[in-house]
């Protein structure tokens, strides 16, 4: 076993890896944006007045949480075309990862919504607020604060799951490192750098989430 780190190769592959980093960030960011909205829809649907909707969404969320992300990505990319839905790797990937994390975030939102005291709902009723205003002006702002730490965890989680998109050919970090490795017959440098890049992104994200939580608490006067 010999350990020789090639700086020449490091500098040579750096631009490609940085380009792939941008793709990774884009995938994580766009996937997370889908999950933020999708998760809220799932969480609210599970409180719908109509029983069958509650049940269907509940089961759907459970199903997504109980099956592997990779399978869901394959499903959207390879199986959906059989039903006439042809999507690019990027679209399929974002859809799958966004949906997957929607299911997880809906649970975080649900916990936040349940943490809002019943008295808040009753106060809304006593001033005759509409259901929509009750949710969007009173309940959700309060539910968000306890939900932020959980939401932050899944932001780091989605970032670390973006390599799964390489299986359908999305040119993110892992995919780029793998190609570099097979072109140069060297894996040490690309994979080490990928690890380092992920670490350098994840670490400050966690700190930023903490900061956001504190800001939010202050901003809402809680």
């Amino acid at each position: 076993m010999n350990f020789d780190w090639s700086w020449t190769l490091t500098w040579e592959i750096m631009p490609r890896l940085l380009w792939a980093t941008a793709n990774t960030l884009l995938a994580a960011g766009a996937g997370y944006a889908i999950a933020l909205v999708g998760g809220l829809i799932f969480a609210l649907a599970q409180r719908a007045a109509f029983g069958p909707i509650r049940w269907a969404v509940r089961e759907f969320v459970e199903f997504i949480r109980s099956t592997p992300l990779v399978l869901q990505i394959f499903f959207v990319f390879y199986v959906a075309p059989q039903f006439g839905i042809q999507l690019s790797p990027w679209t399929s990937g974002l859809l799958a990862i966004g949906l997957h994390y929607s299911a997880y975030l809906s649970e975080v939102y649900r916990g936040g919504l349940e943490a809002v005291p019943r008295g808040q709902w009753e106060a809304c009723r006593a001033i005759n607020m509409s259901a929509r205003d009750t949710y969007f002006r009173i309940i959700i702002p309060q539910a968000l604060v306890p939900a932020v730490p959980g939401m932050g965890n899944y932001l780091v989680g989605i970032l670390k799951d973006t390599p799964m998109l390489s299986v359908i050919g999305v040119m993110e970090l892992m995919h780029a490192a793998n190609s570099i490795g097979s072109e140069h017959y060297r894996y040490l440098e690309p994979f080490t750098l990928v690890g380092l890049i992920f670490f350098l992104i994840s670490l400050p994200t966690a700190g930023l989430v903490k900061l956001l939580e504190r800001r939010l608490r202050l901003g809402l006067g809680l």
């Binding site: 009753e122 006593a126 702002p141 309060q142 006067g221 809680l222």
Partner: peptide, 14 residues
């Protein structure tokens, strides 16, 4: 009809 509660139930973020 208006109502006041034992536990006030003011909106904490306002």
């Amino acid at each position: 009809i208006g109502m006041c509660f034992q536990s006030f139930n003011l909106f904490p973020h306002m």
